[in-house]
Nucleic acid binder design. Structure first.
Lengths: 198, 198
DNA sequence: TTTACTTTTGAACGATTGCTCAATTTTAGC
DNA sequence: GCTAAAATTGAGCAATCGTTCAAAAGTAAA
């Protein structure tokens, strides 16, 4: 009957997310997006509704990819705590070693830093995803307790929050001060702190 | 001879800095600035050259004010470590209690998060100010060593870096998740960690 | 091949952007 | 009061912004 869609939706969102991640919401123009996703305005607006609509899907895609990466770390290593460290190392080092990560900083943190209530739903979406990821950390830490890697008396929620603060701090610091030796030391210090809580 | 300048330069920069701090560089339009500083485009451009020029002065003003606040904490308390804690508490809590702080996040961190090499000199300025502030932390920690508040064997530079990472992490986390009890606990945890290093 | 329906295109819209500059206003010295 | 110099004004520029929509292109069933 009808003409089938030419574009792969996920591929488009992936490309859009990378551009938004690199340049931020306001500095990314629709014409910038048109180029990297190779679509004309009409198609973009028919598919995503607005610049905000596309950004929202990009945020969701980014967060979902992050959670998947964490789960991947879990299956790669036998230990929950090792999985956490692997995830952090990959997150922080990402933009250094990889050829692909558009920014050393977390896209959710960049979004929370850039946007205000003028884009309330995008801001809420980013905050929600941060909560979701912190919850994933908590799950991993609970698992670490049952494995005996972590003392059962520890407050898992507080520890997950602590880990979240550390990752935000380290990645942001690394983005402002690119020095790989220093960064690795910060990560090691973090996990020696966690080891104290064992 | 000539007509004297009507405006107070520092007052203008203060107002501009607050708007930039709140909305970020890209989301702040020159017309927004015209309103809050009550100047017409011609005067603004004659005085500051460009949107970037004004932002640069705003950054410098912000950083200078921050350093002054730290020094004020030092003179208010007898202890260097107490001064540091006071500074952090005021920085983090600022936007909660005060009526004036435009954002819970550090303006330098917001800038580093938002800008790219498209605004290379503004980015460099923000990074430089962060280094400067970290150096101030190091001075305070060295003083803490001579006072005997901190073990002399500690690596002051590493500790200053650690403090910087913590402040960035906590303030950013607080900005994304406004809950004062949680935040105070994070600060207390930080200083109990520093106490271990005594 | 025709028909029915969907996707894609890209010129172009009104609004807003950062910024300019000729005209005006305001002062201080003569 | 007049003049010279500097500060201020604000209409308006070219460029870019996010977005729209009539036209063109494409596909599958009839």
């Amino acid at each position: 009957m009808s003409k089938p869609a030419k574009f792969n939706r996920e591929d488009i969102i992936h490309k859009a997310a990378n551009l938004y991640w690199q340049k931020g919401f306001h500095a990314t123009s629709m014409r910038n997006l048109q180029e990297v996703i190779d679509m004309r305005p009409g198609s973009i607006y028919a598919t995503f509704g607005s610049k905000e609509g596309l950004f929202k899907e990009a945020l969701q895609y980014y967060a979902q990819t992050g959670v998947q990466a964490l789960h991947a770390c879990r299956t790669e290593t036998g230990s929950p705590l090792q999985a956490l460290k692997l995830f952090i190392e990959r997150s922080v080092m990402g933009s250094k070693c990889d050829t692909q990560a558009p920014s050393g900083m977390c896209m959710l943190v960049k979004t929370v830093a850039e946007l205000t209530e003028d884009n309330a739903d995008l801001l809420a979406e980013a905050k929600l995803s941060l909560v979701m990821i912190e919850t994933e950390f908590a799950k991993l830490l609970t698992e670490a307790q049952t494995c005996g890697e972590l003392d059962a008396s520890q407050d898992v929620k507080a520890l997950a929050r602590f880990v979240q603060v550390q990752i935000i701090g380290i990645r942001t610091y690394a983005h402002a001060n690119r020095d790989s030796d220093t960064i690795q030391q910060l990560i090691d210090d973090l996990f020696s702190t966690l080891a104290v809580n064992k």
